[in-house]
Design a protein around this nucleic acid. Sequence first.
DNA 1: GCCAACGTTGGC
DNA 2: GCCAACGTTGGC
Length: 155
Amino acid sequence: MKYWLMKSEPESYSVDRLAKEGKTFWEGVRNYQARNFMMNEMKKGDKILFYHSNTAEPAVVGLAEVCAEECVPDFTSWDKSSRYYDPKSPKEKPRWFMTEVRFVKKLDKPVTLKDIKNMPGLEGMKLVRKGMRLSVQPVTAEEYAVILEMAGEKA
DNA sequence: GCCAACGTTGGC
DNA sequence: GCCAACGTTGGC
């Protein structure tokens, strides 16, 4: 099993919305590296840290799980009215794919970016590496465990 | 294949 | 709103 961190802007799709809807397609990824992680390495049951980005207090705010066997074409890339529309991703030959994510829980105590930066043992996290902007990124089992502990969650 | 211009991400 | 870092595009 693998561990991941997935970013979402709360204005766009918040942890509360995921909690309400139960699960969601992870649409809108328009970066090859992030797409490849979803397509090639994510497996059903993988654990996800749900992260709020581009907000006053960026933080890991919830837990989720990959709930799809495999990726499907991201249909928002065909939708002209979508902000994710991409004319270079035709239906016959889709360029962008997405997985599906299931809500697990909201953290009572979100783990902020600031806390992560100050936490010994998390220096290597991709999240805190300069210039790392991937919206879907792998996390090690150790990093995942430390984050959970910081949140006061049992592993 | 190089690289300048441009667009996006995301912390601050 | 600023801006650094990075990715993509497209002319050559």
